[in-house]
Simulated assay, not measured.
Amino acid sequence: MSQIGIFFGTDTGTTRLMGKKMAKLLGDDIAAKPLNINRASIDDLLSYPALILGTATYGEGRLPGLETNVRNGSWLEFLPQLEGADFSGKVVALYGLGNQVKYGERYADGMFELYQLFKGMGATIIGDWSTEGYTYQQSKAVVDGRFVGLALDHKTQGLLTEGRMRDWIAQIKPALVAAVEAQAEPA
């Protein structure tokens, strides 16, 4: 059976930890082991019918990478592999980490970068999330009044992380599973 691919960009390991928790919530039978994007190839991503992609936000609202002092590289180094890729028919859910108190003027902006990129390559983006309960000034990741994916502030709202993840996974799981099952059906 096909599975749901989970890929993340991280430096400190928090985005990885969130990916592992999401995989556990989904279940080992349908979620692949989360993989750091700095160890992935474009073929890895394209092999899954459904993806959960995670990132933190660095610097002035950027994706992580060598330019933002992420030791082993991350999304910024992976992006060139995506040139010309077609994600039509793929279902993608996004999660983004940030600190809404310290960086409230660009909270979770990195998630928007992934949203824009994968939507532009034809992916169906699912999993928008309410802005209720967050205290930030501005976020590019808010489109039509909702986050484009699950926004997590594990630093200042850590007590809310588990519940938010559980609710978000319950929200996106049916669409992810449907994408996996559709790929598994004989043509």
Rank of each mutant, 00 (worst) to 15 (best):
E77W: 10
G89D: 02
M1Y: 11
M111H: 00
T156A: 12
M111L: 04
V177R: 00
L26Q: 05
D29E: 13
I169G: 10
P174S: 12
V70T: 00
V70N: 04
E105Y: 13
A93E: 07
I125K: 07
Q81R: 13
N38A: 13
I6A: 03
G158E: 12
I4P: 04
Y107K: 09
T10I: 00
A123L: 04
T15A: 15
A23D: 02
G158V: 07
V143Y: 04
Y134D: 07
F112P: 11
K24P: 04
M18C: 13
W75N: 03
E67V: 07
I6L: 09
M1R: 10
G27P: 02
F147V: 05
R146K: 08
R71I: 15
T10D: 05
R164T: 08
P64Q: 11
D28A: 12
T161R: 07
R106M: 15
L97W: 06
G98I: 04
F78D: 13
D11R: 11
A31S: 03
K119Q: 12
L35R: 14
D109R: 09
Q81I: 10
T10K: 08
G61W: 06
V101I: 13
L63G: 06
L51S: 08
V177L: 06
A32I: 02
T68N: 11
N38D: 12
L94Q: 00
D44G: 07
T124V: 12
I125M: 06
L35D: 01
G122H: 10
N38L: 08
L79A: 09
G122R: 10
L17T: 13
A93D: 09
K155T: 10
T14D: 03
